[in-house]
Simulated scan of single mutants.
Amino acid sequence: MVYIIRLMIFVSIFLMSSCSQGQNEKDSQLALMKTTNPNPTVTAENNGKDRAEKIEKDVESFDEIYDVAVVKGKRETLVVYKVKHMQRFNMKKIEKNLNKNLEKKYPKENFTVSSDYKIFLEAVRLVERKNNGTLSNKQAERRFNEIVKMTSDMK
């Protein structure tokens, strides 16, 4: 009987200690279940933060979309979003309208648009690591290019 009680105490301590992760890691882990709305991020040293914020506002204006992450690189802008549950049947139409709207408003920008959850999660992680200072601009740009390549490979 004492052995069972000790085992239960050990298991409960182990479970509680495994739940104590950093807040930023928790945010990226819960990104699929809740709205995160990360700030737009620029991986290059150019000042494209204002444009990234405008792009985020434009994407958020769509009623079907509830969470957006925008990452602006040297040559491309990655726009990833989550669609409201009841709108998932219209995902192709939503992406087509979003692409058309972005190309119309920002003709000089090259956009990579995705509603894939894995890409969204990777973009949120990139934003968190960039904002924490754990990634330099060069490392962030390299990771950004990997995510964009992942997006094109999935299509």
Rank of each mutant, 00 (worst) to 15 (best):
I4H: 08
R6G: 15
L7K: 11
L7Q: 13
F10S: 08
F10V: 11
V11M: 13
S12C: 10
F14K: 06
F14D: 08
L15H: 04
S18H: 14
S18I: 06
C19L: 14
C19G: 15
C19P: 00
S20C: 07
G22N: 13
G22A: 07
N24K: 02
E25D: 07
E25V: 08
D27T: 08
D27R: 10
Q29W: 12
Q29G: 11
A31G: 09
A31V: 15
A31F: 07
L32T: 15
K34G: 05
K34W: 01
K34R: 13
T35W: 01
T35R: 07
T36L: 09
N39A: 14
P40M: 09
P40W: 01
T41F: 02
T41C: 04
V42K: 06
A44H: 14
N46R: 09
N47Q: 12
G48S: 10
K49T: 01
A52S: 15
I55F: 15
E56D: 10
E56T: 04
S61N: 06
F62V: 03
E64V: 00
E64T: 00
I65V: 12
D67E: 13
D67A: 01
A69E: 13
V71D: 05
K72C: 11
K74H: 02
K74Y: 05
E76S: 09
E76Y: 03
T77R: 12
L78R: 07
L78W: 08
L78N: 05
L78T: 04
V80D: 10
V80F: 02
V80T: 15
Y81L: 10
K82L: 03
K82Q: 06
M86E: 14
M86G: 02
M86S: 08
F89N: 11
N90H: 05
M91R: 14
E95S: 13
E95P: 00
K96P: 01
N97Y: 03
L98A: 03
N99K: 02
N101H: 07
N101A: 05
K104L: 12
K105V: 06
K105F: 05
K105H: 08
P107K: 07
P107C: 06
P107Q: 05
F111I: 02
V113Y: 09
S114W: 02
S114G: 08
S115G: 14
Y117I: 15
Y117T: 15
F120R: 01
F120D: 06
L121G: 13
L121M: 10
V124W: 03
R125W: 04
E128L: 04
E128D: 04
E128W: 02
N131T: 10
N132A: 13
N132F: 07
G133V: 12
T134N: 11
T134F: 05
S136I: 00
K138W: 04
Q139R: 10
A140T: 01
A140S: 14
A140E: 03
A140N: 05
R142P: 01
R143K: 09
N145R: 15
N145W: 03
E146V: 13
I147P: 03
I147N: 00
V148S: 01
V148G: 02
V148P: 01
M150E: 12
M150Y: 12
D153C: 08
K155D: 12
K155H: 05
